[in-house]
């Protein structure tokens, strides 16, 4: 009786998992066709970074394709569309998460913001992501590839590390966008603390939040913010 139930379970599970796997992985050819529709001047570079991104655990495969599709329908000249995609490509090349960049691009397009402004915003955001990643490294907080064992508490699995990276950099970006000064390091630190604490136990692990808040200082955030605005 039990073996029959198990057989039915596997019969359902195997096609289901195959279907999920197939939908999560979009062939590179689809990106290539979409890029040629824009068209971009250097599709090979963008494609190579997309291919690199696909090896990361949190690559937003569908949103990237949606973004290219939306850019195809945008009335701006192709070089402006390519400039937006190049920011994403540079982030992927640098091993940075692009989920928040994609979201920012979607929002800008929905608000009918000129592509040049969107590209500028994304560039600032990219700088912040890189600065915060380097800051965490300098504080002894590292990321380990998905699936690898966590040998020390300060070596965080990549997906968790990227979550921290996104939230800290977005908080600084929102602060600057709202008219805050990079020199208000203590206010900036409080903003970061608030956001991480709000997400503690929701999408962030309490030990990760504690580790970051313990090691970073207001002056570190001022340095990152200055790098973004200069």
């Amino acid at each position: 009786m039990i073996s029959r139930k198990l057989a039915v379970f596997w019969i359902i599970l195997i096609p289901l998992s195959l279907a999920v796997g197939a939908s999560a992985q979009i062939p590179l050819m689809e990106y290539e066709q979409a890029l040629y529709s824009i068209p971009v001047s250097n599709p090979d570079f963008i494609l190579s970074t997309i291919e690199l991104g696909m090896t990361q655990g949190d690559f937003p495969a569908e949103p990237v394709l949606w973004l290219i599709d939306r850019l195809i329908g945008h009335p701006a000249p192709p070089f402006e569309k390519e400039a937006v995609l190049l920011v994403l490509a540079h982030a992927l090349e640098d091993g940075l998460p692009i989920k928040s960049l994609i979201n920012e691009a979607f929002e800008g397009l929905a608000r009918d913001v000129p592509l040049q402004h969107i590209e500028r915003g994304l560039s600032v955001h990219l700088i912040l992501l890189a600065e915060i990643r380097d800051l965490l490294y300098s504080k002894g907080i590292f990321n380990v590839p998905a699936g690898s064992p966590q040998t020390v508490p300060t070596a965080i699995p990549m997906l968790r590390f990227n979550q921290l990276l996104i939230h800290v950099s977005e908080t600084i970006g929102d602060f600057l966008e709202g008219g805050g000064s990079p020199f208000e390091g203590h206010v900036l630190y409080q903003e970061v603390r608030n956001r991480l604490t709000m997400l503690q136990g929701v999408t962030l692990l309490p030990e990760d939040v504690e580790l970051v808040l313990k090691r970073i200082e207001p002056s570190d955030l001022t340095q990152a913010a200055l790098a973004a605005v200069s």
């Binding site: 915003g121 929102d174 966008e177 709202g178 709000m198 136990g201």
Partner: peptide, 20 residues
């Protein structure tokens, strides 16, 4: 909303889901 931010010069609302 739980909080507000400015994005592209306009306000956006923020909600935290699943907190507590």
């Amino acid at each position: 909303a739980d909080e507000y931010i400015q994005s592209f010069g306009e306000y956006s609302s923020i909600r935290y889901i699943g907190r507590g």
